[in-house]
Nucleic acid binder design. Structure first.
Length: 387
DNA sequence: ACCTGGTCCCGGGCTCGGTTTT
DNA sequence: AAAACCGAGCCCGGGACCAGGT
């Protein structure tokens, strides 16, 4: 938990915040520093990275598993530790030619959901290696590459973790080929949910498969998060067990359901998460839907459109056209109707909405469809921050 | 034939970092 | 120094076209 989180937590306290202490601690997309029950997997990843602790580079590896199985949790927790020490513990080994202590490779974690283009990939790697002052635009990709090359040349090599690598544009394969053009000793840890046989080039490298959470571990995850994010004893074991049973090993869905149940309970002004809150919470979370991590990393205007959508009454949601007009009129967004329409269709395309064809027969023309959110809406409303 | 919804694509404007000119 | 300029990536707007219905 960073300082900002701690301060926000204090600010929110008091008033009517009696049940939920901090929504961020229930956020499925925010990972904790010590993931529950994933010790053996951490160990396996570390085993593979072992050469990096001995001044050489590990081979590339693909870490994969179903959604909500803790891939990001493990890799981001691991890399946040590994990234930190720029100066390595001094060893007795010194090269004879140079009076320079043995250096270990740099570790960098990149989220391909944010870095989903060649330019952004380089930019985020550069950000991770330096202190985050890489330009966001205004320079050419080539200039960015040479900048990155010169920075990387100061290290013996780099281990780059690319989370959600299978969501990279234009193709997952491009992650590796882009990093190869840097002509630097780079080892990649690719992370994704697509089986290696279904991604070009990912089947040729080492793999670490992560299974979904067992129900017992998932209950532990829920209880741990619940006890830090909610007031004391607000979450009963039985409620966690129900959520875990429903979530079927998907920690994202489980946490989203807990989050939603907590929102509903708090809006009702109660001190504990009741069984009915869990039922209602589960009801609002689509199983296997689009994860909050995807929704919360969308460009700001798309999130605005989404937020405006959630304000709409049911009758404004009856068709895409009606929804488009309503959102274009909303004070939350400042976009033309044409753009809103395009964004809505694009969001449906990536799975943020379901398109349901209505039975409404207006007579002429192609029958319209309406949009139904396919992501955890209550957590999104709470975590959404206009920017 | 005609109508409306849905898809695809790309030109141009915006904003930024770097470079040249004043 | 400061200002003007330039070229880059990203996003918005919107037109052209296709799909699916009466």
């Amino acid at each position: 938990m960073d300082i900002e989180t701690r301060i926000r937590r204090r600010r929110r306290r008091g008033a009517d915040q009696t049940l939920v202490l901090d929504y961020d601690l229930l956020n499925p997309a925010a990972h904790v520093s010590e993931p529950n029950g994933r010790g053996p997997i951490v160990e396996r990843v570390l085993d593979h990275l072992d050469p990096a602790f001995d001044e050489s580079l590990p081979s590339d590896v693909y870490v994969w598993g179903p959604p909500g199985s803790g891939k990001s949790a493990v890799v981001s927790a691991l890399f946040s530790r590994l990234e930190a020490p720029a100066t390595q513990p001094r060893t007795a080994i010194r090269t004879t030619t140079r009076a320079q202590s043995a250096e270990l490779p740099r570790f960098v974690y990149v989220n391909a959901r944010q870095a989903n283009s060649e330019f952004k990939l380089y930019r985020h790697v550069l950000d991770g290696v330096t202190d985050g002052d890489a330009p966001t635009k205004g320079i050419s990709t080539d200039d960015l590459v040479s900048e990155l090359r010169s920075v990387l040349s100061e290290f013996v090599g780099a281990v780059v973790a690319v989370d959600h690598a299978d969501e990279f544009e234009p193709s997952p394969t491009a992650v590796r080929s882009n990093l190869e053009t840097l002509n630097d000793p780079i080892s990649t840890v690719l992370v994704g949910r697509t089986p290696p046989s279904n991604v070009d080039g990912f089947g040729d490298i080492a793999e670490i498969e992560i299974p979904g959470y067992s129900q017992q571990v998932l209950i532990d995850v829920l209880m741990t998060r619940g006890s830090s994010g909610l007031t004391q004893d607000a979450l009963a074991y039985d409620q966690s067990r129900r959520i875990a049973a429903w979530a079927g090993g998907n920690a994202h869905d489980a946490l989203a359901a807990l989050f939603s149940a907590a929102v509903i309970a708090e809006d009702d002004g109660v001190q504990k998460v009741r069984s009915e809150d869990v039922t209602a919470g589960i009801d609002t979370v689509p199983r296997g839907g689009t994860s909050l991590g995807v929704v919360l990393t969308l460009p700001s205007n798309r999130q605005r459109v989404l937020r405006a959508f959630l304000d709409l009454e049911a009758d404004r949601r009856s068709t895409v056209t009606a929804t488009t007009e309503a959102i274009a009129d909303s004070a939350r967004v400042d976009l033309s109707a044409g753009t809103v329409k395009r964004i809505l269709y694009e969001l449906a395309d990536i799975g943020v909405f379901d398109r349901v064809t209505t039975d409404q027969t207006t007579g002429h023309g192609r029958p319209p469809s309406r949009l139904e959110p396919r992501f955890p809406t209550l957590p999104f409303q709470k975590l959404y921050e206009p920017h």
